[in-house]
Each structure stands twice: as structure tokens, then as C-alpha cells.
Nucleic acid binder design. Sequence first.
DNA 1: TTGTATGCGTTATCAA
DNA 2: TTGATAACGCATACAA
Lengths: 350, 350
Amino acid sequence: MAAGNPTIHDVAKLAGVSTATVNRVLKGGYVSADARTAVETALKETGYRPNSMARGLRMRRSYTIGQMLTEITVNPFFANVAQGVENAARANNYRTVLFNHSNDSKRERLGIERFIDDHVDAVLFCTSTDATNLALLDRSGIPYVELERSRTTAAPFIRVDNYTGARQAMVHLVELGHRRVAFVGGDPAIQLPNSRRGYAVEEERLNAYRDCVQEFDLLTDPRLVRLGKYYSMSDTFPGASGYRHTRALLELDQPPTAIFATCDILAAGALQAIYDCRLRIPEDISIVGFDDTLAVCLAPALTTVSQPMARMGAAGFQCALDLIEGRAPLNEQTLPAELVVRASTGRAPG
Amino acid sequence: MAAGNPTIHDVAKLAGVSTATVNRVLKGGYVSADARTAVETALKETGYRPNSMARGLRMRRSYTIGQMLTEITVNPFFANVAQGVENAARANNYRTVLFNHSNDSKRERLGIERFIDDHVDAVLFCTSTDATNLALLDRSGIPYVELERSRTTAAPFIRVDNYTGARQAMVHLVELGHRRVAFVGGDPAIQLPNSRRGYAVEEERLNAYRDCVQEFDLLTDPRLVRLGKYYSMSDTFPGASGYRHTRALLELDQPPTAIFATCDILAAGALQAIYDCRLRIPEDISIVGFDDTLAVCLAPALTTVSQPMARMGAAGFQCALDLIEGRAPLNEQTLPAELVVRASTGRAPG
DNA sequence: TTGTATGCGTTATCAA
DNA sequence: TTGATAACGCATACAA
């Protein structure tokens, strides 16, 4: 037994039946009581476990989901989504294989080819760099699901209601009396061209900001809106961009009393900038993040818009499973984001 | 072609040769020039990719490594190690499958059984909860490697020189004039009973602290040594333990001028406590972390002992591959940890 | 230099 | 109710 795992043949021989009978007790079927007990004891004795490769070959199904992630180490967001997928997958006897493309379309292509080699039953993207990469899967007949951002309209898409989430953040600040609120966030222009649906993450968040500025008659100053990337893969400090923007904001003749940074990593950089300027949060300035990843670890603990990362992953897996098994999942699902108030927001000074 | 991927038979038929010949041009062997070109064009035309399950079945090798992690979402340390493993694995045509046991030995057991079902070629642990779980693999003849912590002496073990790393942190503080240095760290008593080798992570770090206190004649006060868990899986805020310990330290009649927190998550909690007490870092108090995970994101950016997480993962994979292919890797490898000085340490006040 | 034939372990059809 | 058998796609021993 030490040398090589027991196969269904070993079980059959031990039980004095054929492999077909063993299979029947395993999968359910007409088996006599005698045969059943014989097989069951043989099963126990051998400690038989089916060989997943043989089964996969035979069933033309690998029971494996490929997860294409941007970069699991650079933003905890991805680890949390992956975790959600993983748990849902395990519960359904699926396993997952990860691949990080680091926003490099060529690498993503490589990863997709690996997925095809692995005969994954479906692929989850969070998020894809490029619609042409997705087309590779179409050719192989492998279904896929997009999370967070969408590059195509054909595949099911699990999204988050970024508009409402961002709006909650703004309303919270307004209620605290802030009227000079800065926005530090992703530039819609960077992502939008790639987006195939009505909403790009960045656009939604920015729209919520702008709408609230209008609606609540906040100070409008173009210098308060700072757009760019959330973080750079190559920067030694991912929050560098948030740091720079915040420094610039604090040097304004009339600095904002609150900053809405639409990613906890940006917010982390903002906190560092504020710390360097020896300002006190929230007494001197309030700050709200987005994601709820680093938020709870920062000083002070960050008020942030929490994304349902694990739920997104789980919903994505469910879609994938539907696709695999020939059911038609919703083409689009929107999950809510929710403001979590912690210690980084307070009444506007003055 | 859309329905079903091309097999080696398709290629053979198209090229007008046998599957054996196709295999020969794929794997290298005696093939006539004519046959070779015919096969090569057929390969291109079909876009043939070998079926990894069929190959795995035939070769009795899955080209898959199982990674057993404590919990990828709770500490970025694990994501970084996993990333290191992953990259090394990909470079060697291996894939990895993750499993998080959340410090639950039963869950770990479950995961190992899944790995056995998957016929993984080897398992990497970072870290195992329990030596009896490892024994399951022995019975299946699956080799394994331990990272960071060891529960057995048989398997190769990739460790970090925690003593020297921690010592660097202490020397750094001493050089800055600190004489009242607190230690907030893991309790050796929690982990040591499980450890099968001379060094437990916690013991090494604590020993370095104690040795330095002696050697540099620092203040010895048992109240300055705060032991416990790095973080709790269930706490809403992982840094809670660091927060509590730090609050207690700051309430001492003679609070420390520096804190060595032996995990960035603990340090994050310490930063929050210090922030709440309206003390300024490093002017009022210095703090050093360990790991270099959150460090760069905290305010102020944390001076910390950097662990070679990706290297540990890569070295672990190499060991696993050696084991799989019948080579004998070193039973133990020690990687260095290195102090990274950032903004949270400065001259002792007063 | 090339092709035939077999087995890896599982599932499932079909005949008994 | 059961067993013999074929097939999934690949790799390879052996024969030609």
C-alpha cells in the first residue's frame, strides 16, 4: 500500500467483485446488500481514494477552476476575492489554480494558455487586462466569468455598486459638516477604454463624488480632484501615489478638510502624508478609503467603503459552475458596498 | 476544433504519421526531416496542446504542488510566500494548489486528504499545525517540505535566521540610544511544544531581545516583555493584541522609549495605540516590526525586519522538486532576515 | 527511422 | 444484479 495508492481494481479484488460493482456502490446504483457490504469494508480497508486525473480524463472535466488575478501580493483585495472563490469551490468539490498577470497582457495570455493546458472547466477573472485574451478561451470552449471589471458583454459579470458605496462615503462626510472635500482616485480615462459595459469602477466613484458636490453644494475646485493610478506594480511603496496627491492637496492655499481616497492603499499613502505634515486625523482632516482591506490596520483605523470581496468570489464561482453544468447564470449581478465608519472621520474643523 | 481540443491523434492524422512520431518530435528523438516538418506544421495548424490529465495519468505525476498555508488573507506573509512558490513552480512547469487551514488541525487534515486525492507530487507547508497530519502524507508516499516552522525532523526545512534578524533590530535601537526597550511578540510557549527542531521562531526572537538587553545593559523589567499571539483568526482587527499590549506599556510608570513588535500586524496595533495616546513616532517613541508586510503602508512607514518570503517559497519549491525527482535536498536551509530602516525609529527622547 | 499496441485508473455501456 | 469491456489522451516498449 505504501507503494502506490490503491485503485478501484484493488478494492474490487479485495471485495471479490468487479470494478463496475465498486463503482456502483460509490456512485449509487443497483447493488445487492451482500456486495455492498463487501465493497464497503474493502473501501475502508484499502483507504481507497479515486484518482482525480483518471477521473478527469474519463469525464472530460478537471474539476478545476482557473483564477486569473491582477496580483495577489500587491492588494489584499485579490487575496480576499480568491479566498471567496476557493471556499465556494471546495464546497463543491472543485479546486482552483491561481495565476497573477501583474497587469501585463502578455503574461495574462500565457496564464490563459496554461489554464487551457490544464483543462480547467472555467476561468474567473479579477480582472482581465484585455478582451482579446478572453477570446482565447472562447476558442477552447472554456466558459469564464468576470469579477469587478468587465471587458466583454458575453460573460457573466459580478460587479459592485460603486456608485452607491462612494455616495455613502460622501454623505457621511457631508453629515460631519465637510464642505471642502477632495477626491483622490483612479482615473476613469485609464480604465474606461477597456470597459465594455456602462460602468467603470472609477467612473462610478467619481460620478458619486461629483453628484454629491453638486447636490450638497460643496466647494467645487478642480484642484481638489486628483486622478491617477491606485498603485503602481513597480513602486517600492504601493501607496506612493496617494502620498503625492495628498501632499499636493495639503499645500493648497485652502486645503480640503476631508479626503475621499477610493482605495485603501491610496488612503494609506494619504495617512503617511498627513502624518508627515503633523496634522491630526480626524481633528484636522478626515479621510475615507475604499475596499476595506488595509483599513483596519492603519492608524487611525480607516473609515472606508467595504467591498464584499468574499461574496464576489463566491458568486463568481457559482456562475462558473452554472456555466459548466449548462445552466444560464445571470449575465450581471450587482453586489452592494457599504460604508464602515471607524476612526479616521470626524466633524469638520473650524 | 471548437468542439473538443485537438489530441495527439489529430496531429498524427493530419501529418500522416503515427502518434509515436508526433511524440518523438515533441519530446526529441530520431525523426526524419520530412516527418519532422510535417508534424510541425500539423502542430501549428491544430494548435495542439497536450492534455495534462492524460499525461499525469500516464506519467503517474500530476505536476502539481499542494501549498498548505495558515491563512492567506490574515497575514500578507502567506501571500508573499505563496507567490514565491508559485513563480518557481511555473518556471518548472508546475502548478500549485492552495489550501488554508486557519490554524485548525482538522481542516488541515481535510486539506491534506484533498491533496492526496489530487495526487499532488509534493506538499509545501507554511506552516503545519501538527505532525500527525504530516504522517498522512508519509503513508501516501508524498514528499513534503516545511517552511518557517518545523514539526518534524525528516522533511526538508527552510527557515529564516530569526535570531540575527531580531538582533539587528535591537542593535539599531541601541545605537539610537534606547535603553528602555519593550518586546511585544509571540509566546514561545504557544508554539514551542509543536516544534521539532532547536529553534522556534518565537524563541529565537525573544532570545535575541534578551541577549541584547544583557549585552548592552538595557533596562530589565519583566513588564516590558509582553507575550501572546501575533493575531487571532477570529478578531475583527488582527492587530488587537498589539494594541492592548502597547496600551499597557504606555500606562507603565516608566513607559519604554522603543518597542520591538515581532510581527508587522502587532506593530500596526501598536501604532494605533500610540496614535490614540497622541504620542508621536519616532519623537516620543520608536517602534520596529518584523516581516516587512504591512510595514511600508503604515504611518509612519515602519522600520522592520524583512523576511525573505519569496525566496523562502522558491527554495521550498526547489526542495520539493528535488524530492520528487529523487535527489536529496539539504535537510535544512537558513535564509537571512534583514533590518529595513524606515520612519518609525529615531533617537531616544530625553 | 517508424508504427503498433498496451496500460495508466476511471466511468459507463452493454450483455448476461 | 453483475461483469466484461471500451474509451478518455498520452507515453513508451517493442517490433518492424
